[in-house]
Design a protein around this nucleic acid. Structure first.
Length: 258
DNA sequence: ATGGTCGAGTATCGA
């Protein structure tokens, strides 16, 4: 099973690139973030014609998350698990696809360490930790995929000194990721490539992509039973090139059938 | 580090 995640930065603009990518990468499950669409505008039919069922949680203009699957989509839940405080944004959706419980997440950016948006980010991550409790068990098949807006370690940014005092690298944000790992989720891509400097996001400005000034903030977190069956993982940098790319590249992890 | 770029929407703001 190929499980992928991609922050598309407006699905309206990105649809041709997304359709192209689906056609050659053929993910079984694809988590999308920043669709920037209302639910009414989401192109379910176009994805259906490619063989995918889809669920979407969006309010238009900002945020918006989706899951596409060609191995079934059961029990969709928009937002956090129902016993948790509701989120005013549309940043998380969950469904069961081919026996795997999958959440597509768009973690708040945080803007700056002294911002209310940073406090909101940390609170959101605490709720994500509680949400994971409701998803299943560490010995089950759970994957949380998306744009975490956190670089797990200094190896995940092009120049750690350039990010000193910024969001994405702060200790509280990284601790929130560690809390998810302590629950039983594994950063699958890092497991596969322990020492490589590979990024998933590059700012549009200043030629950052071509200068390799990137960050690895798009993650596939999965439980040990899944990561034990991982056979391949990739950041598709080709999808960051060419005409009207997203500023994020898609990431996928291949897991052998149980 | 800032912002040289995008995408929202149509003046700026957010990332």
């Amino acid at each position: 099973m190929r499980i992928a995640t991609w922050n598309v930065n407006s699905l309206k603009v990105r649809m041709p690139r997304v359709e192209e990518w689906i056609s050659y990468a053929r993910p079984d499950v694809l988590c999308l973030q920043e669709t920037k669409l209302s639910d009414a505008a989401f192109p379910h039919m176009a994805f259906s014609s490619l063989g995918y069922e889809s669920v979407h949680h969006g309010s238009g203009q900002w945020n918006g998350v989706a899951i596409l699957s060609r191995v079934g989509i059961d029990d969709p839940v928009a937002g956090f698990a129902s016993h948790l405080e509701a989120d005013p944004d549309t940043r998380i959706i969950t469904a069961t696809c081919g026996g795997v419980t999958v959440s597509s997440v768009y973690v708040p950016n945080g803007r700056s360490l002294d911002s209310d948006h940073y406090a909101y980010k940390l609170a959101w991550l605490e709720r994500l930790r509680d949400h994971v409790d409701a998803l299943g068990r560490p010995d089950g098949e759970v994957a949380v995929c998306g744009d975490f807006n956190i670089a797990p370690t200094d190896a995940d940014v092009w120049d750690p000194a350039a990010f000193s005092g910024s969001t994405h690298v702060s200790q509280p944000e990284r601790q929130a990721l560690i809390s998810l790992e302590e629950w039983g989720l594994v950063d699958a891509f890092r497991r596969r490539y322990p020492d490589d400097r590979l990024y998933t996001y590059w700012d549009y400005r200043a030629g950052d992509f071509h200068e390799h000034r990137g960050m690895r903030i798009d993650l596939v977190l999965m439980t040990e039973p899944l990561v034990a069956r991982m056979r391949w993982a990739l950041v598709d940098r080709n999808a960051r090139k060419g005409k009207q790319p997203s500023d994020h590249a898609p990431v996928f992890v291949d897991v052998e059938a149980a």
